[in-house]
Simulated scan of single mutants.
Amino acid sequence: MAKTDNDPIIASYDVYLTESEISRYVLQYLDRPAGHAYDDRNGQKPTSFRFKPKTGLVEVDVPINTRVNYDVSKGLRYGEALKKSRSAREGGAYGMAGGFSAGAGGGGGAAAKVKMEADVEMSGMPDPGSGNLMRVQTLGGRIKNAEEGDPVYMLAAFRGKNLHLSPVSAVVQLHPQLHHLDAMDEMPKTGRGKGRKDEDDGRPEPEARTIDVKIKAAEDGEAAMVAGNLDLLKKMQEEKWGKYEWVDAETEESWHIYESYMMHQDEDLEGLPQLESAIESEDYLDKMSAPRIDPARPEMTGWAMKQNRKKHGKQGEGNQDEGQDQDQTQGS
């Protein structure tokens, strides 16, 4: 073998698969630089993590730095709106998590997004006093149901010469949620009729009524899709939030969890069952690559091309056997 290998093997590892029944989620913050994680080191450790497992909704509350590029007057307005909102009083949630209903049910609603702050001192900024300053931003997303053909992601962890792979349950992309704007939209509804001129005095405030919207689609398929979306929003509205404690990545507890759930816990690694490939190399190439085309017969691709090669291979073996028989006849 010529010594011209430009891609030498420099290391090899034994690969082990960890427990697959454990849920592992990867949270992606699309508008956040990689060097500024939401953690205690950067002063933005999440204060709350909420999850609706049936509908796949995820929300994370992260602190807002109110000392840099922060409008205190608007922060007070948004904080007051969230405190007085109907959704917060009824323990509901806004946006998709509440089924796009202002009075949606479900625990851990908008009230958790505002902290009561008093006597706050800010250099160069007005003192908000005892107002309700909005100090928390909510990030939210939804887990996409897995479909056939979706990639399977793994988390890798090294321990010496062993590589431990842990399957990822889902990847969740989190975006800023505008719950404070939804709360502001409620304010005119509750305060309508106040502060008007004399001609408006004494008039009763219109009573808020629930309006049922019925959508009739032109096609049966479209109607089924609309009905499915409405059913999903109803389930989002009815499902309760599950609350979880956020453990910072640099704590001892976090490293203990890492060692417990990212490493294979079987002490006898040598006695573990070996992986066996359920697919041949040629089939693997067909599945991961674009369809292969036979230049001599462009109409034959993929499976048909493979069957054609097998057919010609058998014919070639038969012709070779006939040639050997003829040689033996001539020799005799």
Rank of each mutant, 00 (worst) to 15 (best):
W255K: 15
D231A: 12
K243V: 15
D220P: 13
W241V: 11
D268P: 01
W241L: 10
Y261F: 06
K214D: 07
L230A: 04
D212V: 04
M262G: 07
M236S: 04
T210G: 01
E238H: 13
R209G: 00
W246C: 10
M262K: 03
Q265Y: 01
G221S: 11
E222F: 10
A218Q: 15
E252G: 09
E253N: 05
H264E: 01
H256I: 12
E270A: 02
E253C: 08
I257G: 05
Q265G: 00
E259W: 04
D212S: 02
I257F: 15
A249N: 15
K240C: 03
D220Y: 05
A223E: 12
L230S: 05
E238C: 08
M225H: 14
A217P: 05
N229R: 15
G221L: 09
K243E: 15
W241I: 08
D231F: 05
W255S: 14
K216E: 12
E270Y: 03
E267T: 08
Q265H: 00
T251R: 11
H256L: 14
Q237H: 14
Y244V: 05
G221W: 04
W255I: 05
V247S: 07
E222D: 11
M236K: 06
H264D: 00
A249T: 15
K243D: 11
E253I: 09
A224M: 04
S254A: 15
E219L: 06
K234E: 09
V226F: 02
K235E: 13
Y261P: 08
A224R: 10
E253T: 04
M225S: 10
L232N: 09
K235I: 06
E252H: 12
T251K: 09
D248V: 06
A217T: 06
S254G: 12
I211G: 00
E250G: 12
E267S: 08
D248Q: 10
D220K: 15
E238N: 11
I215H: 14
E222Q: 13
K235F: 08
E239M: 00
E253G: 03
A223I: 01
Q237E: 09
A227G: 06
Y261A: 03
E238P: 04
E250V: 14
N229Y: 09
E252P: 12
